[in-house]
Simulated assay, not measured.
Amino acid sequence: MSEDFYDVLGVSRDASEQEIKNAYRKKAAQYHPDVSDEDDAEEKFKKVQKAKEVLTDDEKRQMYDQMGHDRFQQAQKHGATGGGRGQGNPFGGGGNPFGGGMGGGGFEDLFNNLFNGGAGGQQRNRPRQGRDVSQHIYIDLEEAYHGVERDVKIRRREECPECDGRGYPEDADVNTCSDCDGTGTQTSVQQTPFGRIQQQTSCRTCGGEGETYSESCSECGGSGRVRRTREVTITIPEGFRDGQRLRYRGEGEPGENGGPNGDLFVEVSVREHEDFEREGDDLFYTHPISFPQAVFGAEISVPTLDGEKELEIPAGTQSGSTFKLSGAGMPHLNRRGNGNLHVEVHVVTPEDMNKEQREALKKFAEAGGEEIKESLFQKLKNSL
């Protein structure tokens, strides 16, 4: 899969936001680790999520188009692609490499990135929030109307039950890391836009712990985390719209060093309905009526998502006329009331009529001064 975000989603560079969202849903369903058998499904799924995140954000997309993939990724790595900073400048606003001052964003973000949050990497043991988990589900329009509960299976890393998250057995020997002498950090020199800067990073051998162990946990391989599938019950409220997200705090992956869990984000897609079209909280429906109903008027029964409702058709109604049933649309999300149902009526021309119906219709036309001409085939058919 190409790294370019447009290629990742399979859309053109001038694709609309809705086209991008539609492409994301298809790709996310294809590569989701819970349903895909591909070995690199998780990696592809993350790329799809990242592409959607950038290309549905107007500011990020503009910068991505201006800078190109590689420069944008580098700028984002240094924390310089957000917060309304400079257009096309990977280090901040107005061509100023310090992004508006020491406290203005660009320089501070870059500095903190280079030094792992400041203090030469000494904050490696600070509490860190766990990673968020994303899920994507589909519901029907009826479920969006009434609200629904769903049991959603999610895969997330959890604390290893075998070693309680330590990464090593309780009786393992503990040794001072020989690569960092127990400091948990290693020093390197990096070439940056500001010149050569000495950078301290977490020791790769001990992971910043300053200690190594004689053996690793057989269950988690020393990571302290195992991947598990969990079932979470989510509640989708009445009136939920296509593409909206639900957030469940603390249902993501566990934090590190006592930090809080990440969150679970569930994006909901509402399937198209065979009878109703939705715009906001209003619904649109097309209903057939007969010629006599259009001429003389009638009371017809119209389906809604909450049962049948009666609609008065006035005499002389023209085909294509639209009538409104107030409050028969979708519920307003998080507030009282409903949208409306708009019913467009179409007069149906009968394909076959008996002799009495045909004669009556001819007399109706003649009374209005209309001349009816029948084909030879029709005359023969009527005479039988």
Rank of each mutant, 00 (worst) to 15 (best):
T349G: 04
I139S: 12
Y24G: 05
Q135F: 01
P169T: 04
G83D: 05
P193M: 02
G103S: 15
S301F: 02
V270N: 02
E19T: 07
M102F: 13
Q49G: 08
E211L: 15
I197E: 11
R128A: 15
N340E: 05
R166G: 07
G167F: 01
K52S: 14
V345E: 01
G184C: 08
G259F: 01
Y248T: 08
G222P: 02
P127E: 01
I154Y: 01
K52W: 08
V152H: 06
D65W: 01
D242A: 11
E59H: 04
R61V: 06
P97D: 05
K324V: 15
P331I: 09
E142A: 05
D151W: 12
C206I: 10
N340W: 00
T304S: 06
N261A: 15
V232A: 03
M67K: 06
K355I: 09
D37K: 11
G339N: 01
E53F: 11
Q73R: 14
F291R: 15
K324G: 02
N96M: 09
D173P: 00
K153A: 11
Q122Y: 04
G105H: 05
A41W: 00
E219N: 15
C206T: 11
G320F: 01
C217S: 06
F284A: 10
A315E: 14
V348S: 09
Q200K: 15
Y145D: 06
C163H: 01
E253G: 06
G259M: 09
H273S: 12
L283D: 03
Y138D: 13
K373A: 12
G297Y: 14
P350T: 08
D306G: 03
G106F: 00
K153P: 02
D173E: 14
I197P: 01
E231G: 10
R126A: 15
A41N: 06
P237H: 10
M102N: 14
G195R: 14
Q74S: 15
Y64F: 04
Q18M: 10
T201Y: 06
R225T: 06
Q76F: 02
Q186P: 01
E238D: 00
L311M: 13
D109S: 10
T317E: 01
T205M: 06
G258K: 04
G94C: 12
I300M: 11
L283T: 04
N261S: 14
Q18I: 14
E370H: 10
